[in-house]
Design a protein around this nucleic acid. Sequence first.
DNA 1: TGAAAGAATGAGATCGATCTCATTTGTTTG
DNA 2: CAAACAAATGAGATCGATCTCATTCTTTCA
Lengths: 340, 340
Amino acid sequence: MSDLLSVAKLAGVSRATAARAFSSPDLVRPATREKIFNAAQQLSFRPNKVAQQLRSQATQMIGVMVPSLDNPVFAEQLQAMEVAARASSYSLLVTTSEYSPSREEEIVEEMLRQRVDGLVLTVADAGNSAVLEKLRLENTPCLLVYNPPGNSGYASIGVDNNAAGADATRHLLTLGHERIGMVAGPLLQSDRAQQRYEGYRHAMRDAGFKPRPVVEMNRHTQADLASLTPELNGPDFLTAVICTNDLLAISLMGELQRAGFSVPGDLSVMGFDGIALGKHLYPSLCTIEQPRAEIGRTAVQTLLAMIRGESCTPAPLPHALRQGESVGIPTFRKSMLGTS
Amino acid sequence: MSDLLSVAKLAGVSRATAARAFSSPDLVRPATREKIFNAAQQLSFRPNKVAQQLRSQATQMIGVMVPSLDNPVFAEQLQAMEVAARASSYSLLVTTSEYSPSREEEIVEEMLRQRVDGLVLTVADAGNSAVLEKLRLENTPCLLVYNPPGNSGYASIGVDNNAAGADATRHLLTLGHERIGMVAGPLLQSDRAQQRYEGYRHAMRDAGFKPRPVVEMNRHTQADLASLTPELNGPDFLTAVICTNDLLAISLMGELQRAGFSVPGDLSVMGFDGIALGKHLYPSLCTIEQPRAEIGRTAVQTLLAMIRGESCTPAPLPHALRQGESVGIPTFRKSMLGTS
DNA sequence: TGAAAGAATGAGATCGATCTCATTTGTTTG
DNA sequence: CAAACAAATGAGATCGATCTCATTCTTTCA
């Protein structure tokens, strides 16, 4: 691979002049410039970004860490980030933490060594995160996505999960549901899921109903009907559930229907996130839509502002209730699993 | 950010020795090593990868270009690639082409400037691609994913789309379907979709049936029922369709059901790709499963082998028919849309 | 004890681009 | 035509790590 020096030699000028021909062409006499460009062409010269990065002490790279790309929420966010980054001549170094704190640390360390200009992270629990503590000592700009702001001290891009959880609940309440449950992944380990649950409890109490404990599924994005069955039985059976993410909701709907239940006839199901696919299902998924693309775009733009040294306190982005066929009016029913 | 030189100074040794303490500790006397590590700790030294990359002429970075991360096929592949790459201490520079040839060129140029050690690309049409032509002149290892091998001269990781298309068709034929259609995105512009169609035609002819022309949808991953309606009508109405990707199949199923058709009662629907979600739907999606994770993993491993200078001709990976509730035995029916 | 072999360390060049500052070339004008 | 100024170019240092080769310091054993 030819370098600038060989181009300069072939053109009969110094490295400095050759460099100028590219970075500030107007400082070079047109004839000289022409010679340099010709030489570059001839040698198929391609500027070496690594050298530029070392010299300029800036990589024009953003380090991105998401829990997993198997969840479309993150993939869709990343898609938007990539477009936004490229529009500003930045590249993305992408990693997945698989929800593992130790991986989170390795990854961030690695990215700091790579001297990324900034970091966009989604951590498991922002309020209690080793990585974020470590990062506090660094001066690399860092931004959270989806994690609730406030309990970490870091700026964060995302929706108000608490309010969103309440909105979801109120939607169901408005339709006449009273016995509403919340379905979450294991241990409720994600801070956003917790906030959504808070919002749910708040809305339930406000309406004069008793919030229920979370129904925990074994996996993050796949429902197991067995865990829910008890709640569908007995005098207090649920008429609606809110899942902490869309994948959970979709697989729950599938399981329910496969077991002979009707959605929303027997149980209304709401999701959370608003992944694109939910719209096209039948029944279509009623969900709280996070503006995933906008979140990604805003994250990049905010981070770039921070890199430029501007201080900025991003506001929460608006979420929206997406109506869907998976939610209906509660009908009077007997216990669906009644053995009596 | 402190550099090796300051560490060396603080430890009272030369840069060379300080560097050795990290790269080959056994060449440094334990006492000296200790001093250096202490100094490094004290200055919170973090090796600069950019400098290492410049010096070693290797970035340990793989450039990845996929059409879009909004499609879980690519996201799931990328997820696996990331894990595999990190396991070998490589990083991923991720970009999306949005199916645009001009973007493809910009992206590849950018990645070459970044001196990635290798490229993993999924292009729109490998047989007719400007980027690939340009890349032929470079000596950066390059690997295709999903694109059919053969018509480009590049090694490629993926399944045998032709055989897979035939397998899908034969599955339907075995169940008794005869009037089977194929549904694709706009212009059949993807080379893999074309191959799948070839396989379909082959299988149909082998079975003594007339292959039908492709039913083209307006969008890549979203079905519009109107385009299909004519085929569901008249004496020759379809009893089954194969979609060229899962997203198309899922949205088609939704549209059909929403319009009052039953799946598979009125129409059996097959997908292609095997995205994770399909399993959890109801009806679950019958599809040809590409081993997306294995494809990603193999792509990384093959590319790393190429980077090491080993020559390798990857074999196609096995696809599998995933049974699903979206396909059934054809029932005798009248034209579903009959206006008579 | 001394010389030879081996271990440990340092000086300096290198990777490729770019910046500063000095120097040369070219242009303008009295 | 020469002086004064502006434009164009070059020499050399720099970014941070690492490699080569030379040098110094330890061992070891005759």
